[in-house]
Design a protein around this nucleic acid. Structure first.
Lengths: 108, 108
DNA sequence: CAGGATCCAAATGGATACTG
DNA sequence: CAGTATCCATTTGGATCCTG
């Protein structure tokens, strides 16, 4: 995640650096209610290849948005959840959600 | 722009279809205060190639987010501004801005 | 089940040259 | 000035196979 050294000039760009990516917003949305397994996440997002979803999750983990918990079981179980930083992005998702609802209401 | 036929299931995805792209958010941000010429926009965004910026603007125009006005002058002048639909996305930008500010405040 | 490794097709993006 | 056209390097993404 960006620190004081490499924060962008405009605050709008900070969330873009972290979730400026279609899949990441959807991951965030689907983890907002709580923990999900990899397979659940893949299904709930729909149309992501495993490779891409894995890469995005690794990236978000690295940026401190997502927790990854591996259970030493057979078959393996991996659960993903949001960190506090990840959860803190909720107002942005809410704004998007509200806009989408408003748009739908005006285009039915 | 999406109509009632092809709206995504989740409202969060509607704005993503329109501005789910780093450059588009920045274009939106820079046009929010008012009209700008192509060159101004290019400079204020920084690090976009002309080709990409043009393509993004065309796309946003097609989606009804941006107005394009060409003046029959020499040298030519082209001004871009937001439509009402484009302006209506402001709450999303505000949410991003607020988050960026908050983040900065906690990481200085 | 979750994902690493590979291979390959397609999309994206930059640089450059040219034009009304 | 604001593009369009072209060429090319890089990135991205899907499909597939394999494994603890």
């Amino acid at each position: 995640m960006p620190n004081e050294k490499n924060l962008p000039a405009c605050p709008v760009e900070t969330p873009l650096m972290l979730i400026g990516d279609k899949w990441k917003v959807l991951i965030l949305r689907d983890l907002m209610p709580g923990t999900k397994r990899f397979g659940e996440l893949k299904k709930s997002i729909g149309n992501v290849s495993q490779k891409v979803l894995t890469a995005q999750l690794r990236d978000m983990e690295e940026k401190g948005l997502v927790n990854r918990k591996v259970y030493a079981e057979v078959p393996p179980r991996v659960e993903y959840s949001l960190t506090e930083l990840g959860k803190s992005l909720k107002p942005i998702l809410d704004a998007m959600w509200n806009w989408g609802e408003e748009y739908k209401a005006q285009n039915v």
